[in-house]
Nucleic acid binder design. Structure first.
Length: 291
DNA sequence: AACCAGCACAACCGCAGGGCT
DNA sequence: GAGCCCTGCGGTTGTGCTGGT
């Protein structure tokens, strides 16, 4: 939402009416351009923090909390707007699998993205997929679909995107690194045609119910090349210091068409999905998922 | 053209934790 | 230790937008 065209909450008009009766009443609802400018000016004078004090000093009839939220989610210069890139989506899926709904922690690894934005993305896009499949986003079945299908597709998309079309997604402090080093995919990086939706659907619907845990661990070491990923993604995965990246390795191995493709089939039966339903879902999932 | 349903996202709310007195 | 205040987090709500009918 642009600050120049604020939404008018139904309740807000009432509040503004109240304000006309009482100048001390706190404002709620969408911010106006004048309020934004006032807040920016006040922060430029006094800096961030001490939000309640800042709200009073600025003359804004807003709570400190509201000022903080407006600044961090909208006005702060390094806040990035627009659609999340495939790399950002990939990172969100991976980090959420590890940390759950720790939005602020996840946001720390996505330069310029706010916890609010990531939370909204998860609720509107990811949970929508879970609803389509009638499964819980926290279930192991959904996790498997993410790492066995969506993450490989995102990796494919990243690798298929010409460097010139890749979004500039690094924060200012990373600017010196953003030649990006995007190179042609090598070794374990996907061959785009290696996996199709129907192949994945077929794997998921296979008759075998073998455990995947031992096989996928042996595959993790096979992928160590993140050259095609943006710096902030590489920063996260490269040194392994975060203890992350296992899922990405798994997904990448899946894209590479490894014969030991680690998909458990058990959950399909556990959730009583009809094979035709699931295969149909998978065949048009790109549209649903908006890759 | 009008209506409707679903989506996207800004903003609010309640709560918890930490610091200070 | 108790009480207060501030900050930050995660969940939820509300409204404009958009696409379908």
């Amino acid at each position: 939402m642009s600050s120049s065209s604020p939404k008018s909450f139904g309740s807000c008009s009432e509040i503004e009416d109240d304000n006309s009766n009482n100048g001390n009443e706190l404002r709620r609802g969408p911010w106006t351009l004048e309020e934004d400018n006032l807040l920016i000016h006040s922060i430029s004078l006094h800096g961030e923090g001490r939000w309640n004090l800042l709200a009073k000093r600025s003359g804004l009839r807003r709570t400190g909390k509201s000022c903080r939220l407006r600044w961090l989610n909208y006005l702060k210069p390094d806040v990035k707007r627009g659609n999340l890139s495939a790399q950002e989506q990939l990172l969100i899926l991976d980090l959420h699998s590890k940390w759950g709904n720790r939005w602020s922690k996840i946001a720390q690894h996505l330069p310029g993205r706010t916890d609010n934005e990531i939370k909204n993305y998860w609720r509107t896009r990811v949970q929508k997929q879970a609803r389509h499949l009638n499964i819980d986003t926290n279930s192991e079945a959904f996790q498997q679909i993410i790492r066995s299908y969506w993450m490989p597709r995102l990796i494919q998309k990243i690798n298929q995107t010409p460097p010139s079309e890749l979004p500039i997604t690094s924060p200012p402090e990373m600017a010196s690194q953003t030649s990006f080093g995007f190179e042609a995919p090598t070794t374990a990086v996907a061959q785009p045609s290696a996996v199709t939706p129907l192949q994945i659907g077929g794997d998921l619907m296979g008759s075998s119910c073998s455990s995947s845990s031992s096989s996928h661990i042996t595959q993790i070491s096979s992928f160590q090349n993140y050259e095609n990923f943006a710096p902030f993604v590489k920063d996260y995965y490269h040194d392994g210091g975060h203890g992350g990246g296992e899922m990405l390795n798994w997904a990448t191995t899946a894209v590479a068409g490894d014969s030991g493709y680690p998909v458990s089939h058990c959950h399909v039966a556990e959730n009583n999905w009809m094979e035709s339903d699931f295969t149909g879902y998978m065949s048009n999932v790109d549209e649903l998922w908006q890759f």
